[in-house]
């Protein structure tokens, strides 16, 4: 007569069966290399796309972050203001804690530079006198630079001075860029959610077909007394493998794209001075890909198993 096994023995057997199913589900994937590879390729692309966009966005933020301090102020004095007035103002501003540095651009020097850079040399020579004012370029201190309200207060204070004509705060474009990045980030998140859903559905559908192909086997094992957990196990592990290989495939796609783009990107960045090194795919990204891929793989399998296993009962 059959006697129930002792608990420890059953636990050991349970662990052994997990280990067995872990590898046998992998073996099953390997026995259908073409269809498995196709599924994994689709998963890899679906995972690589949002990860790639995310990486792109992270880089743009990375560069923009470096420009955060570029909330610089340009102070144009009134045309009749004299050089010594400009120097006095510059000296006063250098003592201001909110300002890191002050550069005085003399109006003659500015005109010479403009003639050289603009190509309007002859036209400018025709003018009776220099139309340009003296100007001061102010670099805000880091604390003030991070605070748009402080910069605006500084601008208003400077505008109120009698010798100042106009203060230009180069903040608008930065704010626009950051707003654009926020929008892009939301877009990338949306794409990420949709493609994550696609991974779920791809794995779910693959497992559904697998369940249908093995319906007879499921029926027989149910007849012999297999529990639902026992029958679910190989399918959940199959989902795990799909997720794992899909994530590794996505990492390979990103690594290849990075390898292809790195040199031209480096040449482009070399044209701008003072930019930080671009960020490539790293271990943290691989970890996120693996977590997402495996999680969605198992979830997709669980979804399919939950929906379709109950329908297969012995007759």
């Amino acid at each position: 007569m059959s006697t129930p096994l002792p608990l420890l023995e059953r636990l050991r057997a349970w662990a052994a069966h997990h280990a067995y199913v872990f590898f046998s589900s992998l073996g099953r994937l390997c026995r259908q290399p073409l269809s498995s590879a196709l599924t994994i390729a689709v998963l890899a692309v679906a995972l690589a796309l949002p990860a790639g966009f995310g990486l792109l966005l992270t880089n743009v933020r990375h560069f923009a972050g470096d420009w955060q301090g570029a909330g610089r102020l340009t102070v144009y004095l009134r045309p009749e203001a004299r050089r010594d007035q400009a120097e006095a103002l510059a000296a006063a501003l250098r003592d201001d804690a909110r300002i890191a540095s002050v550069t005085l651009i003399d109006k003659d020097q500015a005109l010479a530079e403009f003639k050289r850079a603009s190509g309007f040399g002859a036209a400018l020579d025709a003018l009776p006198d220099n139309p340009l004012p003296h100007a001061l370029v102010l670099e805000p201190a880091p604390t003030a630079a991070a605070d748009p309200a402080a910069l605006e207060a500084l601008r208003d204070a400077l505008t109120a001075r009698p010798e100042v004509e106009l203060v230009q705060l180069d903040l608008d474009w930065l704010q626009r860029l950051l707003a654009l990045l926020d929008l892009a980030q939301r877009g990338v998140r949306l794409i990420g959610v949709l493609l994550g859903l696609a991974v779920l559905l791809i794995v779910g559908n693959t497992i559904r077909l697998d369940i249908q192909a093995r319906a007879d086997e499921i029926r027989v094992t149910k007849l012999i007394g297999a529990t639902d957990a026992f029958i679910r196990r190989p399918f959940l592990y199959t989902g795990f493998w799909y997720g794992l290989f899909g994530a590794l495939g996505a990492a390979a796609v990103l690594a290849a794209a990075w390898w292809l783009l790195r040199a031209p990107l480096g040449r482009l960045l070399a044209l701008y001075t003072g930019l930080p090194e671009p960020l490539g795919p790293d271990a943290a990204l691989l970890g996120r890909l693996l977590a997402l891929g495996i999680g969605q793989g198992i979830a997709g399998a669980a979804l399919a198993v939950g929906r379709h296993l109950k329908a297969i009962e012995p007759r």
Binding site: S2, L5, E9, R10, R12, W14, A16, I224, G225
Partner: peptide
Amino acid sequence: DRTVFDNVALPLVIAGYRR
């Protein structure tokens, strides 16, 4: 798709017998 041995072993695998 399973050998005679594996077919016969199925109830024992389900019951958790070791190899």
